[in-house]
Amino acid sequence: MAKVEQTAKDETGFEPKIVAFLCKWCSSAGSDLAGVSRLQYPSNAVPITIMCSGSMSPMFVLSAFNKGADGVLVSGCHPGDCHYLKGNFYARRKIYLVQKLLQFIGLENDRFRMSWVSAAEGAKFAQVMHDFVTDIKKIGPQTRLKAKRP
């Protein structure tokens, strides 16, 4: 497990800032399972637990980039498994549109990601985190949408 952390290290010393929006019932529970299983992954992503991926407003994504996030992740229950029956289906459509728009204006493709992680997928959660951090380290810091603050 320590190996995972090792490979995520980068020579440049750049540590990406990532916000991970996790739905309470699946992905947050999945991250709990990763914890209980002591699966190690990079610490760059700070989790924000939301009730459902369906409650993920596009404003949250845009705001996170505006505030300087190098990456944003939204993670919810697999299709058909939503605790709220169909919230993740609404999320999927909305996130798809946000992603297309961000790509269109030229934000680097890999900075905004969505994943399905169930409560039983602790290992998948760790993998998603690891992959995301690795990919963003390759792209470097996000400057395009970041506000310049005094």
Binding site: P79, K86, F89, Y90, R92, R93, K94, I95, Y96, L97, Q99, R113, M114, S115, W116, V128, D131
Partner: peptide, 29 residues
Amino acid sequence: TFQYNPGSDPELPTLTSSFRDTDPNSFIR
């Protein structure tokens, strides 16, 4: 992608307050 044509029917639910099971899924990890 969603075969949604704005302004075609006042009775339709809006684009973002509706979904189909067959909406794109492969972009999700």
